[in-house]
Design a binder for these strands. Structure first.
Lengths: 136, 136
DNA sequence: ACCTCTGTACTGTGTGCACTAGTACAGTAA
DNA sequence: TTACTGTACTAGTGCACACAGTACAGAGGT
């Protein structure tokens, strides 16, 4: 019985995001929604790379980012595991990046001439559909 | 009496966005909010470039993008003017880009572990504060 | 001890994109 | 003619990204 689950990640070639970012986003979302539970082991760097048909370095880079953000923790020689929730960024850094995200989204809404109500409703719908885990 | 106003645009060196995008976002936002009214003439490519201390090509590129999106219209040898509102993108293209914007923002919210309610409230606040012009 | 798995680190290489720079051309108006 | 307008083109630079190869250290089974 394998301790790692298949991790139904898919790399979309048409996606504008870099491969490593697609991996980061995918895994982070699965942790946030609880699909990947606390303590679960992730596929190995080389294993996931082979499964996705990409370079192991790309997977390692994604894992390193997730570890730095506090989503994963590594045990030398053992593997990577889903880490317990904790505050990962400083309040200033968090606030700054959130401001940037808001500004970017507002700019997109204006550029596409989307109705404000529609945009708000859509964001509300997307976010309420997620089950968030508690942070420490 | 100059037909072009000063256009209080500022280029932030600390901004992660490329210079041309800062110009596009800035002008587009000013048009959307009505600060730049229909028919107003914009500063010349070389004039704005000198004012901002950047390359004229960068300004030309930004203007070209705004023209392609339908925010501006150019009259050969005369200058660039704020264009009348009209539908600029196809429904599919619009929907696709909006989906991408929503996905990107949701990913940021998850990554920063921001509460859904807080994110929705913030977007609502930012968007309601803008006065949108009517599109055709 | 040996082997095989794990993560991590490092040096290159190639590609694509954004930005800058310079030059040239076409239209408008005094 | 002169001076302004936008536009088009080439070339160079810097950077992020993905890939390739190699190497090292820790954990665990044989």
């Amino acid at each position: 019985m394998p301790r790692t689950q298949a991790l139904m990640l898919e790399i979309a070639t048409g996606d504008a995001r870099p491969i490593s970012r697609q991996i980061v986003d995918g895994i982070r979302m699965r942790i946030a929604t609880g699909e990947l539970a606390l303590g679960m082991q992730l596929p190995s760097v080389r294993g996931l790379a082979q499964q996705l048909g990409i370079n192991p370095n790309t997977v390692a880079k994604a894992y390193a980012e997730l570890t730095a953000e506090g989503w994963l923790e590594s045990r030398q020689g053992l593997g990577l595991f889903v880490a317990p929730p904790r505050q990962r960024l400083s309040a200033e850094e968090r606030s700054k990046r959130f401001d940037e995200a808001v500004t970017r989204f507002v700019h997109e809404v204006v550029a596409l001439d989307v109705a404000p109500d529609e945009a708000v409703a859509r964001i509300d719908s997307e976010l309420q559909g997620l089950a968030f885990r508690k942070s420490a």
